[in-house]
Amino acid sequence: MSSSNDDVQPGVPAVETASMDAMVETERADPREELAKTDHDTELGIAMAEDAKRVSQGEISAEAYWEKYDAAAEQEFGDAYRETPNPSIESTDQTIDAGTADSLSCTIGSMESVACEIDAAESVEGGAAPEDRKARWGMVIDLQKCVGCDSCTVACKAENRTPPGVSYNVVMEEEHGEFPNVTRTNVPRPCMQCEEPPCVQVCPVSATYKMDNGVVNIDYDRCIGCRYCMIACPYGARYFDFGENYDDEVEEAGEITSPEYGVDRGKREDGKSPIGNVRKCSFCTHRLERGEEPACVETCVGDARNMGDLNDPDSDVAEMADSTRSFQLKESEGTDPNVYYLK
């Protein structure tokens, strides 16, 4: 500690690297105890973990690692091992190269595809009728936790790269009462992804429709831009893309667009959809599909926003949506939003 006295900054604890490592070491779970809790071989686990460290330090390659443990892993994990691509931290798709995988007669593919398959498998697993267990995405926003910082709005604009005048999420700020008895409520407003969506009902070309996972989709290749859905939406959640850009504020602002609804549309160009179309929050469908939370949920400083499967009665969101604090916006409209608020 004495050696680095010169670097001590006010308010910053003066802790040396060695002592920090020691703190980590005391917190770290004992590998043997952890592995003993599983049905699998402890010694194999320890050996693989030690070599995995060497892979991460660059001492051996991921391919060499898997060649070394191929036989042992098959013996231990059987078909599950053969059917899953072998992870590698060195390549962009996070799996070992195809040649090695082939010689080991293991499945070739990216880790992303593994995540998608697990997701799909989980959503149909369990329950007597698998088709009833489809996920219905829902959001629960705890108004007691919302501080009105608008970071959800900012995160949403950054994630979805929405143009000027389009903001899928806004925070509606309301003041109640008169001085000195004034309170303020912040109500974040994404798209409600209604179960009975008025926007879907009025679209003359069926360009907007409900997906199986509860999200209301917009097909930018079909939308004619009549804006009837904006008239019908009781939440003002829909925005027209007038074709404006942030070119003056940000260089190359339109170089990349967000792969909304999983479709990558490349550069933002005049006369190309979604310009001239109606746009709205998609619960970040493209993030949900790869197992991530929507940007607003991830960024929320007060952890006020929660995302999950409302069809799963054990999920946090389903429990919160059932609580006595729970309500929906404009319940009398009969739209039955999949966004719930906790008062």
Partner: peptide, 10 residues
């Protein structure tokens, strides 16, 4: 080409 039975505009 595409229709929506519940849409007055359609």
């Amino acid at each position: 080409i595409w229709r929506q039975l519940t849409s007055a505009l359609s």
